[in-house]
Design a protein around this nucleic acid. Sequence first.
DNA 1: TTCTTTTCTTAACTTAAGTGAACGTTTTCT
DNA 2: AGAAAACGTTCACTTAAGTTAAGAAAAGAA
Lengths: 193, 193
Amino acid sequence: MQNLLFEFISKYISLSEKEKEVLTSLDIFRTVKKNTVLLKEGEHSNNGYFVLKGCIRTYYIIDGEEKTTAFYTEMEGITPNCVLNKKASEYYLDCIEDSIVTVSNPDMESEMFQKFPKFESLCRIISEEHLMKQKLDLDEFKTTSPEQRYLSLLQNRPDLVQRVPQHQLASLIGIKPQSLSRIKSRILKNIKN
Amino acid sequence: MQNLLFEFISKYISLSEKEKEVLTSLDIFRTVKKNTVLLKEGEHSNNGYFVLKGCIRTYYIIDGEEKTTAFYTEMEGITPNCVLNKKASEYYLDCIEDSIVTVSNPDMESEMFQKFPKFESLCRIISEEHLMKQKLDLDEFKTTSPEQRYLSLLQNRPDLVQRVPQHQLASLIGIKPQSLSRIKSRILKNIKN
DNA sequence: TTCTTTTCTTAACTTAAGTGAACGTTTTCT
DNA sequence: AGAAAACGTTCACTTAAGTTAAGAAAAGAA
């Protein structure tokens, strides 16, 4: 399992054996069962996660309704809001598949940054990269229709369309499950003609 | 003008006189006239900007139509996509007011990081903070209606509603100018009753 | 200033998403 | 295995955004 993490990191910086040992010694790997809730609205957690296998979802409960806003799958990391701003979490995190993740917190981070400044570079670069992607995602959302967003999901995240319940997918593209059903049949109809 | 920048930075890290001098010596301050286009679709630029005064806008041209996706005002920074991914820019940047900005590029950055590792911490922290905000923005967009988004703008960015053309605001919340007009009159009507 | 262009609003009509309900299917639980 | 819950789809109806067009107001250029 470590190797997956090392491979990921090595895309950004090179790791010495010493550094790998320190990382391993932190004992950060956890297996999490499907449907486990990792974070609830209102909680103050310090845990950040990195998905090695499986899928984690973020969702809000607004007017009693679940609103799914993101999925994190293999080689994606999540630092919940409440870890950074020290406020109560506004959303939930749960595991929608049996998963293997790493769990870390800001104290471990600062310790690593002090021992190996390289890790702070790693985190800066990854943050900047994610920030860039996140902005593009918002831009895409602002400039496209629900149907276009569904087609783009089919293109760019075909795995998600398969592994995730449709009503959560609908939420992800900002519509109701009934509308997603309608969009699908509209697309099918247009293909046939 | 420097002082504005130093004040901003001092919210994150403390700056010695030496460091301030080095920053000043970089000669990064520029004034930019209203309507100046700072970046065009297809260009490869290395310039990042930080707005000291004024307003910069990002927009796409999709099917011949301008789609505004963001505004950057006082004390906000922009590192265009193309600087990080080294690909042709997908969007435009322009100045919608006479502005004062700093201009920097990755080379200057790495030089600063080497001379003063503190600056890399600064950039990591700011990146993480922005990433958090950006995710919240996307979550809000996914979970709200255009009308709610407009009301939230009135609340959270009343300055923008004043200083920005309405058709660009409409685009920002993902609708057409006609729909924004409609939403405004709907809101007015509801207040009266 | 005057002319031109851009911006904002309103209106009528079209299109697509929201809503509430029904129903068959799948999954989950015991 | 059997009952219950959750899920996905379809339908009829409602609501809101898109479209096209027109006209008034504001901003910018000559």
